[in-house]
Amino acid sequence: MFLPPRRSLAALAVPLVSATALLAIPASPAAATPVPSIAAAHAAPRVATLVGVRASHHPGLDRVVFEFRGPLPARRSAGYVSRLIADGSGRTVPVAGDAILGLRFGGATGHDNSGRPTYGPARETFALPGVIQVVNAGDFEAELTFGVGLTRKASYRVYTLTRPSRVVVDIKTPQRTVPVRTYFLDSRAYAAGRRPYTAAVSRPVVPPSTARAALQRLFAGPTQAEYAKGLRFVASGATGVRSVVVRDGVAHVGLAGSLAGGGSAFTVADEITPTLKRLPGIHWVKIYDAHGRTERPKGRSDSIPESLEP
């Protein structure tokens, strides 16, 4: 569970049954009806079912909406966390972004009686100025946990709407952004052997660290609409970017994780290199593995680690 303590913002109303109603017995045995039990009189509270997560940009803010079937979640809490923790396992759940806004919904579920999700993918990427990803970290015992990956910390507001039931998070986006192009694998072109194997999409990033921000967006992966068109992020074992240094026209990119090309003709290097070369002042890209190794560390040339060779 993430770090901020839970705090209840709403309580469910429980129907009350008077003592007279519980003790009243008909005078005629022939007309007697069953006496309701206390358990039946106090019905279990209804649980909100998450049916959709969406995000969009509005003037000055990014808006994330969680839509529920039935009532609103009985409890809602929000706060910035240093990392997103998976409910139950306690493991860190990766979230793209430099800030994570943690959200918890009590009295809510995100799956049906068969265990199938009711709201869509557990991890969804957005091409917005502030919101990069919305990631689920728990759906257990009527408790839902999410993390919203942001470009930076910003003020936010959480409120509710009804008909249908919605929890809305408005996140301020005062920062100026510039568009960059990130390159993903075009799986349909690759399967057909039709070059180029990459397709470019636009992402807003905050200057001046455009190279780092572009790779952050790359590692967040395609949006759902882009995924439906066949775009994919090939990680090749990379779990993230450790560092980006641009010097004398050369971008030096340090990756985290256990890099492995696996004999493929297409690797994460084929996405990083064109993404960075579209930025002003970058003409060559050198990619290093987690141990700081690359094949040609010196000179003005492109370079990849040996582990990414076919």
Rank of each mutant, 00 (worst) to 15 (best):
M1A: 06
P4S: 13
P5R: 12
V14K: 15
P15Q: 10
L16M: 10
A19H: 15
A24G: 08
A31H: 15
V35C: 05
P36D: 05
I38D: 12
A48T: 06
V51K: 14
A55D: 12
A55H: 14
S56L: 14
H57F: 12
P59D: 09
G60C: 11
P71V: 13
P73A: 12
Y80K: 09
R83Q: 15
T92L: 09
A96D: 07
D98A: 10
L103Y: 00
G120Y: 07
P121C: 07
E124I: 10
V134H: 06
V135P: 02
A137V: 12
D139Y: 02
D139I: 03
D139H: 02
G147V: 02
L150S: 00
R152T: 09
R157F: 06
T160F: 02
R166M: 05
T173C: 08
R176E: 14
F184A: 01
R188P: 01
G193T: 08
A199C: 07
S202D: 10
P204T: 00
V206S: 09
P207V: 05
A213D: 06
A214E: 04
A214K: 03
L215Q: 01
R217M: 11
R217F: 06
R217G: 05
Q224D: 03
G230L: 02
G237T: 07
R242Y: 11
V245Q: 13
D248N: 12
G249F: 07
H252P: 04
V253Y: 04
S258P: 04
G261P: 01
G262H: 08
S264H: 10
F266Q: 04
T267R: 09
T267D: 04
D270F: 06
E271T: 08
P274M: 06
L279D: 02
I287Q: 04
D289E: 07
R296K: 12
E309N: 11
